[in-house]
Amino acid sequence: MEARWVGPVVGAVLFIVAALVPYVADGYWMSIAVTIAMYTALATSWALFSGPTHYISLASGAFFGIGGYLVATAMSDYQLSFWLMLFIAPIVSAVVAALIGFATLRLSGVYFVIFTLGLAEMIRNLVSWVQNNFLGSRGLYVLTDFTEDHIYWMLLAVCLAIFLFGWWLSRNRLGFALKIIGNDEEVAKHVGINTALSKVILFTTTGFFGALVGVIIAPRYSYIEPNQVFSPELSFLVVIMALLGGAHRLWGPLVGVIPFTLIWEAITISFPNSTTLFLGIAFLLIVYFIPNGFAGLIEKYWSRMRA
């Protein structure tokens, strides 16, 4: 078999195995599987943009929140269908991402991080205010017939779409452009790359997929509050998982998401008051000891074994 087909074939097999999980997993493991699928989608999509460009986006929570909030408002207040919102919310979020991108991605990475840092919180404040003053603060419900299994399969489909997109990107001009931008933005401009536009396009896809995941996961909570869906913590979790796995490989975030979700689950149950501390320690461990993530470690051992 040709080497370049190994990845896609392994990927396809893993995908089929993953699709069969609901037939064997019980309620507890199913809920963990949903969480893993959710973070795999978010972290992989994050890494497609932040991996090559090194722009650290903390906007995941905001996009995710836009998805969750829009589907809840539309279903509770306007009797629109879930499926329609599955279509509309990601587009709204992508537009928001594009606007943020045009304002910040022309500038250095620091401005971008800072802008996205408070974004979820800011949108939450704005949404709460609008809701309290103009819409009346009624509860927002997302009532569907979906079971955890359905949510899981939908998320898995999103993961597949993101992986296919990433695979396509790796063999296409846009992906190549981002790689060059990450190496040297000045050179990128001088070989004819519209650097700002390339970054904005990729960031827009992060916005799209973030909201898509937010819509799909909403039925799991059924009662939606802005305080809960616009979660700054989610943005940080996505960053940690992607970096832990390694943002420079398409499969990197996946190998970070699985172990981290399991540990995170254990910690939130056993030490519910120490989650923030743990998050801080995880950040520090990654920066100091595994700067290239698990993917980096795996590649190192692999090349050592072959040498």
Binding site: I180, N183, D184, E186, G192
Partner: peptide
């Protein structure tokens, strides 16, 4: 218009052949 830089700027994260292709993928 293509250029070289006073202080050499190659793209360290790309292979040598990719470095050259960077010049043709988006250029004139």
């Amino acid at each position: 218009v293509a250029r070289t830089f006073q202080l050499v700027r190659i793209l360290p994260g790309l292979s040598i052949i990719e470095n050259v292709m960077a010049g043709s993928a988006f250029g004139h």
